[in-house]
Design a protein around this nucleic acid. Structure first.
Lengths: 329, 329
DNA sequence: CCGAGGCATGTTTACGTAAACATGCCTTGT
DNA sequence: ACAAGGCATGTTTACGTAAACATGCCTCGG
C-alpha cells in the first residue's frame, strides 16, 4: 500500500480510501491511485484488512460430507447469495455424523476466520454437541426443528406433505398410503406426521406406512408390497427417488400409473419430469432456503441478540402425469 | 492473548508457543497456559495469525454452481483432504459459465484469503479467461486437459472407456455402440475418442455414435433408436444416468438386458447397483482426485515453480449383471 | 569450582490495514 | 474583507500474533 501511495504521490490513507470506495476523494486523485494500483498489481491483504476491521466477510457452513442432494443445493444457494453480499463461504466438512466429529467441527470453528455460521444438520446431533459455538457469532440452522433455540430456516415440509395428500384426496381417492423416509430423519418425520394429520382432518384412519431409506432401491422394495394391495390407489412417497423405485415396482406388477395407482413424490429433482410417467411432486425451493440462511446470519450480525424462531419456505405442487382420479370414477 | 498470559503468569510469547504446539515449553507451564485459555475461553484470532504468518491455511475452490455430481464429489473429497491437512476450503461460486463470470471469480480471488486455488472447470473457459490468477499462488485444475499449462488432476477417462469397450469385446460382442455425452464436454469427448480408438485397435469400424446430454431422458430417447437395430448387442453409455434411460427404453421395446443387449455405464453412481438389472459400469475414484488436488497445491506451496503436467486417477470396472456374451454364444 | 553451552522463557518489533484525529485550503455569507 | 465551516488529504495509532533476538538459570565437563 505504501508503494502505491508513493507512486501516486498521495498518502497510504488515501489509497485505503480509494480501495474501499470511500467518498470524498477527488476524481483525479482516485484515478491516479487506481493507475498506481494497476501499475504495481496491488491487491489488498485480506488478513490485515480482517484484523483491522474485525470481520472476515466470510460465512462458515457446517454440513455432512455433501451427502444429500438437498444439502448440496442449499449450499449452492448459500454460496451464491453470500457472493452477492460480498461474502465468501468456507466449508466445514464433517466426515461422519458422529458426536465426536460434530464437536471437532465446532471447536475448529472457534478459531476459524468466519463471521457467522450456517448449520445444515439434523437437530439431534446439534443438541448433543458438547462444544459450544463461539459466543457472539450468529448461527442459522437449516434442515432442523430447533426453532426454540436457534434461528431456523427450512422448507415447509408439513405444508408440502399436506398439499400432496390433499391433491390425492381431492381427486377422489378413498385414502392415501405413505412411503416414508427413514425414522432418524426429521424431514421424514415431519412429512409422515403431516400425512397422518391431513388424513385425520378428513376423518380417515391412516393405513400403515411403509418405510424406506430415501433410496430408489428401498422404494422398489416397498412398491412390491404396495402393489399387492388392490385397495391401494394413491401413494405419497417421501421423496422422488423412492417414488422412482415405487413406479418401477408398480410397472413390473402390472399396476398402471396413474390409471390404477396415483403417485406423488417430494423434492422435484430434475429427473422426476422424465420418469415414466412424469412424476407429480412437491417442489422445494432450495435457492430460497439458502438465500434466507444468508439473510438471517447477516441480520444477526447487525442485531445483537437475534431471537430464535423458524422461517418456513413454502413448497409448490407440480402436477404431472402420475396422478389421476381413482379407477371407476 | 495478553489476558491469558497474565492469568497464567507467563509472557504472551509463551502463550503463542503453547497455542502453536511448540516444543520447548515445560509441561507445567503448558498446563497452566492451557488452563488459563480454557478459563478465559480464548480463541486465537485467525486474521492476526494469517497476517503474521503470511498464510491463511485456506484453499480456494472455483467451480460452477455445484452442478454435476462429479464436481460435488470432488469438492467433497477436497474439503475432507484439506481438513485433514489443517486447511479450510473457501468456495468461489461461478453462477453461470460465461466468460464474464469466470473473470469475475478470478479477480475476486485476487483479494481473497486463500493460499492456493483448485479449479474444477472445463478448459475452454479457463483458456479464455482474461484475468490472470494472482502470481505466485499455486493452482491445480481438475476435470480439464490443460496439462501443458497447469498442474492437472483428472480421472483416467480414456482408460475407463477403453476398459468398458474391451470388457464388451472380450465377452464376444462383434462391436460396441456408444451413447455419447454432449459435444461441449471434454470428459464426453475423451470417452468417445477412447471408444473409437479401442474399436480401431481391434480392427473394427465404429458404428455411428448416438449423442445424449448426460440426462436419463436423453438416454431413453437414444435407447429407443438403438433398440430398433437388431445388430446392436452391446452399448457403452458415457454415464450411468443415460444408461438408466437406455435400460428403460430397451425394456420397453422388449430387448432384454443382458441376454440380448449388454450395457456398460460410466461413473458408478450409488443408484447404479439398484438398476434393473444392476449396471456394469466404470467406477471413478473422486475421493482420490480430490486428495491429489489438495496434495498438488500443497506441494506447489513448497516448491517455487511447479511444472505443468497431468496426473491421471485410474478407474475400475465394476462388473454387475447388465453385461453378458452376445446371443448365440 | 568455574566457564561453556543448552534450554525455558521474556522483550521487541513488524506484519498491512483503517479508524480517529489533525491540517490546511477553499468556499460562502455577512 | 474576514471568519466560519466544509472538504480533501495527511499523520498517528492500534488491531493480535509470531519471528527474531535477548536474558537468565541450570547442567555438565575439565
Amino acid at each position: 500500500m505504501g508503494d502505491v501511495a508513493r507512486l501516486a504521490g498521495v498518502s497510504a490513507q488515501t489509497v485505503s480510501r480509494v480501495s474501499n470506495g470511500f467518498a470524498g476523494v477527488t476524481e483525479e486523485t482516485r484515478r491516479q491511485v487506481l493507475d498506481a494500483m494497476r501499475e504495481l498489481d496491488y491487491r489488498p491483504n485480506s488478513a490485515a484488512r480482517a484484523l483491522r476491521r474485525g470481520e472476515f466477510r466470510t460465512l462458515g457452513v457446517i454440513t455432512f460430507s455433501l451427502s444429500t442432494l438437498g444439502n448440496i443445493r442449499t449450499l449452492d444457494a448459500i454460496a451464491t447469495s453470500a457472493a452477492r453480499e460480498g461474502y465468501a463461504v468456507t466449508l466445514l466438512p464433517v466426515a461422519v455424523p458422529t458426536q465426536d466429529e460434530v464437536n471437532g467441527a465446532f471447536s475448529r470453528l472457534g478459531e476459524l476466520a468466519v463471521d457467522a455460521v450456517i448449520v445444515i444438520m439434523e437437530t439431534h446431533l446439534l443438541d448433543a454437541a458438547t462444544v459450544s459455538l463461539p459466543p457472539g457469532i450468529p448461527v442459522v440452522v437449516a434442515d432442523s426443528d430447533a426453532g426454540d433455540r436457534y434461528t431456523v430456516v427450512d422448507t415447509d415440509q408439513a405444508g408440502g406433505a399436506r398439499d400432496a395428500v390433499r391433491h390425492l384426496l381431492d381427486l377422489g381417492h378413498p385414502t392415501v398410503w405413505h412411503l416414508a423416509g427413514p425414522e432418524d430423519s426429521f424431514a421424514a418425520q415431519r412429512r409422515a406426521n403431516a400425512w397422518r394429520a391431513t388424513l385425520a382432518e378428513a376423518g380417515l384412519v391412516p393405513p400403515p406406512p411403509v418405510r424406506g431409506d430415501w433410496s430408489a432401491e428401498s422404494g422398489y422394495r416397498a412398491g412390491l408390497l404396495l402393489a399387492e394391495r388392490p385397495d391401494c390407489t394413491a401413494v405419497f412417497a417421501a421423496n422422488d427417488q423412492m417414488a422412482l423405485g415405487l413406479l418401477r415396482a408398480l410397472h413390473e406388477r402390472g399396476r398402471t400409473v396413474p390409471d390404477e395407482v396415483s403417485v406423488v413424490g417430494f423434492d422435484d429433482i430434475p429427473e422426476s419430469a422424465s420418469f415414466l410417467p412424469p412424476l407429480t411432486t412437491i417442489h422445494q425451493d432450495f435457492a430460497e432456503v439458502g438465500r434466507l440462511c444468508v439473510e438471517g446470519v447477516l441480520a444477526g450480525m447487525r442485531r445483537p441478540t437475534p431471537e430464535p424462531g423458524t422461517t418456513l419456505v413454502p413448497t409448490r405442487l407440480v402436477s404431472r402425469r402420475s396422478t389421476a382420479p381413482p379407477p371407476g370414477r
